[in-house]
């Protein structure tokens, strides 16, 4: 009897685990051709401009006289070591911090506070555990939020998980929910702050494909912060290396998308690594 009494809860937990694992595996193998939505809606990407931006915390200067112009719709990767100013740059763009001097503009508007047209994907998914998945995606509510949130969930391939609690999702699924949450408001700029760093290799590849597909479909501007050079080369239109608060390298990636593995990609990889 002891076996039965003990296993009741465990069996259901194990079943749940296995189920979500299986779903994930199935989705991974399906991912090369994520269901492309026929009527993918494009919206306007925003240009990002940094003009002579300095940011210091007390005596420590994190960004020194930074100039950067990101055209609307570009996929930019910012690579650098920890403490190189990547995260600070990102916080300036979305308005969580303000520059000590210089100017940041999104489109034509100078960044003075939090920008509604800029959305940010954090390193951790930051889902509110007491909101169902759908409630997390539509966290800002507003008219018709449920339909919009559902559409965004569908976009990331989680249409049927809206009623779940975040705690039952895997790490990759949580990041996809976070991505859906960022997409709901149709941002002109999407900032990705190493959102794939904590994922396992398979899930990371899947997230790369998903992000790339969604970016192509909707046409917003992406700034991807990462310390993974391979990730930057495989996803970005352009790679910027940030070293000690200055731009050490700024190169375009003129390679065909989908399997950038040739000699040219390897050379680019080397070049970026040397600059980091």
């Amino acid at each position: 009897m002891e076996i039965f009494a003990a296993s009741d809860a465990e069996i259901s937990a194990a079943l749940r685990d296995r189920e979500s694992r299986e779903v994930e595996i199935r989705e991974t193998f399906r991912s090369p051709r994520f269901p492309e939505t026929a009527t993918a809606e494009r919206w306007q990407g925003e240009r990002i401009r940094l003009n002579n931006v300095v940011k210091s915390f007390g005596a420590r200067t994190v960004l020194r006289r930074l100039d950067l112009d990101v055209p609307a719709g570009q996929f930019l990767a910012v690579v650098g070591r920890s403490g190189g100013g990547k995260t600070t740059l990102m916080r300036l763009i979305c308005g969580l911090d303000t520059a000590t001097s210089g100017e940041v503009r999104i489109g034509e508007a100078p960044v003075t506070g939090l920008m509604p047209q800029v959305r940010l994907l954090f390193q951790d998914a930051r889902l509110a555990p007491w909101q169902r998945v759908i409630g997390n995606v539509g966290i800002a509510r507003g008219p018709g939020w449920r339909e919009k949130a559902h559409a965004a969930l569908k976009d990331v391939g989680l249409a049927d998980r809206g009623r779940e609690w975040p705690s039952v999702l895997s790490g990759g699924q949580k990041q996809r929910v976070a991505l859906a949450r960022a997409l709901v408001s149709r941002p002109g700029v999407l900032l990705l702050d190493e959102p794939f760093g904590a994922l396992d290799a398979l899930t990371r590849v899947e997230m790369h494909r998903l992000t790339e597909r969604i970016w192509k479909e909707h046409g917003f501007t992406v700034v991807l912060i990462t310390h993974d050079v391979a990730e930057a080369v495989s996803l970005a239109d352009r790679v910027v290396v940030l070293r000690q608060g200055e731009i050490a390298l700024d190169v375009p990636v003129d390679l065909p998308r989908g399997g950038r593995t040739g000699a040219e990609a390897a050379r680019l990889h080397e070049r970026i690594l040397a600059a980091v």
Partner: peptide, 9 residues
């Protein structure tokens, strides 16, 4: 979470 809520308006 509070920071997230601020960023998401």
């Amino acid at each position: 979470l509070i920071e997230m809520a601020r960023v998401y308006g």
